[in-house]
Amino acid sequence: MNVKELKKDIIAYSKTIGIDKIGFTTASTFDEMKNRLLQQRELDYQSGFEEPDIEKRVNPALLMDEPRSIISIALAYPSKMKIRVESKKGERRGIFCRASWGTDYHVVLRDRLKKLENYILSKVPEAKFKSMVDTGELVDRAVAERAGIGWCGKNCAIITPEFGSYVYLGEMITNIPFHSDKPIENQCGDCNKCVDACPTGALVQGGQLDSNRCIAFLTQTKGFLPDQFREKIGNRLYGCDTCQTVCPENKGKDFHIHEEMEPNPEIAKPLLKPLLHISNREFKEKYGHVSGSWRGKKPIQRNAILALAHFKDETAVGDLITVMKNDTRPVIRGTAAWALGKIGGEEAMNALQKAQINELDEDVIEEINKGLNFFMKKES
């Protein structure tokens, strides 16, 4: 087996199946990443969604027998919608982050990795693989950085010279000893725009993220959103793009290469009020194919309520009162009560006063009181 020729063939083939960048690196341990992960754990900066075993996140030998190298792939996704829909008074809209536009990227990248595996097997029948996307054990960006896909920016995203940071990442551990590509030198320099622009200060410093403060993480939680973040969320339903949109490396970067990544504007930027009453079945049918649906409808509905409060949408008061009175989930009832206080008006205040008498859940009662406190502040 001529590994050098095989690598050339794989690179050529990858272009025919819609892989925008491909890089190769060793299967040695990611020692620097291990130190960073240990520090993140010590500082309690982890989100809880990660693989809990740090050794598995940095040592490919724990994931596959006799790994010799890792192939890293990147696919570019759009940063702008071809068809725009406007959020206007009475018809306010929320927004899913760009990484949740189009078909779930896990599905798309797994398809490319499977095709790559089959191609390599046709050349080397004894080849072995372990492929993963995002939810796998390895840290995608650590692999991509070492494989020369891009550099790890201060916003903790891989930044490629060609596509900026608007790329999905996946990797494949293999027993074939490919020659490694050279990493790209970090080009962030003195730029600190992403750190300065982070709405919640989650980017503690360049390259260090406190996940518990990150809006992208907070939008995926299922409980009450902490008070300090409720007004920071804006109209975000899932994820946050701020640290990407302010990045100079992303200026003018907008690639529409993959049809399955094209957003349907009514899904990527949906009307908020209909989300309050959507059934599980309707939610699955409309949003089930996007990555932002993985936690179910509850976080999306809670965020939609917060977005209506952000817009102070008086046309949503009736809907929010219905939700506060009838929804079986305390988080949704309570968030609706808080939002009614934020929006204000006599109808909202009367509904909160009635709910204060009828509500039995202590957490919801606390939220009703917060809502009523908004009225007291206005009067004083």
Score class of each variant (00 low, 15 high):
Val133His: 02
Ser79Met: 08
Lys115Asn: 13
Ser28Ala: 07
Ser69Ala: 11
Pro265Lys: 10
Thr328Phe: 05
Gln40Thr: 00
Cys243Gln: 11
Ile368Pro: 06
Ala351Asp: 11
Ser69Asp: 08
Lys182Met: 12
Ile365Glu: 07
Ile343Trp: 03
Gly207Gln: 03
Phe224Trp: 06
Gly94Asn: 13
Ser72Thr: 07
Gln356Asp: 15
Arg213Met: 08
Ala316Trp: 00
Arg281Met: 06
Leu271Glu: 14
Arg141Ser: 15
Glu285Cys: 01
Asp190Ala: 13
Ile176Gln: 13
Glu260Gln: 11
Glu171Gln: 12
Val124Pro: 02
Lys82Arg: 15
Lys193Leu: 14
Pro248Ala: 10
Gly148Ser: 07
His277Leu: 06
His256Arg: 10
Ala336His: 00
Thr174His: 12
Met33Gly: 00
Ala157Ile: 06
Ile54Ala: 10
Leu271Trp: 02
His258Phe: 09
Leu38Asp: 10
Arg41Thr: 03
Asn186Asp: 15
Cys214Ala: 06
Gly170Asn: 05
Glu347Gln: 15
Thr221Cys: 06
Ser131Gly: 13
Gln228Cys: 02
Thr242Glu: 14
Gly223Glu: 08
Tyr105Cys: 11
Trp101Pro: 08
Val3Asp: 01
Met261Pro: 02
Asp65Tyr: 07
Gly136Lys: 04
Leu109Ala: 05
Gly136Val: 01
Asp104Ile: 03
Leu320Ala: 04
Ala348Lys: 12
Asp181Ala: 04
Tyr238Asp: 04
Arg92Met: 11
Phe96Asp: 08
Ser131Trp: 01
Thr315Val: 00
Leu272Thr: 11
Cys97Leu: 00
Gly201Glu: 09
Arg329Glu: 15
Ser79Gln: 10
Glu366Met: 08
Lys377Trp: 09
Lys154Pro: 05
Pro270His: 05
Pro67Met: 14
Tyr77Pro: 13
Glu259Ile: 08
Arg230Tyr: 08
Lys4Pro: 01
Ser72Tyr: 04
Thr26Ser: 15
Asp319Thr: 02
Gln40Asp: 12
Gln244Ile: 04
Ser380Ala: 09
Asp319Glu: 12
Glu86Asn: 15
Gly102Val: 08
Asp9Ser: 09
Ala27Tyr: 04
Lys193Val: 04
Asp227Met: 06
Lys4Asp: 09
Phe283Gln: 02
Arg84His: 11
Ala76Pro: 09
Val133Thr: 12
Gly206His: 06
Pro177Asp: 11
Glu266Pro: 02
Arg36Val: 12
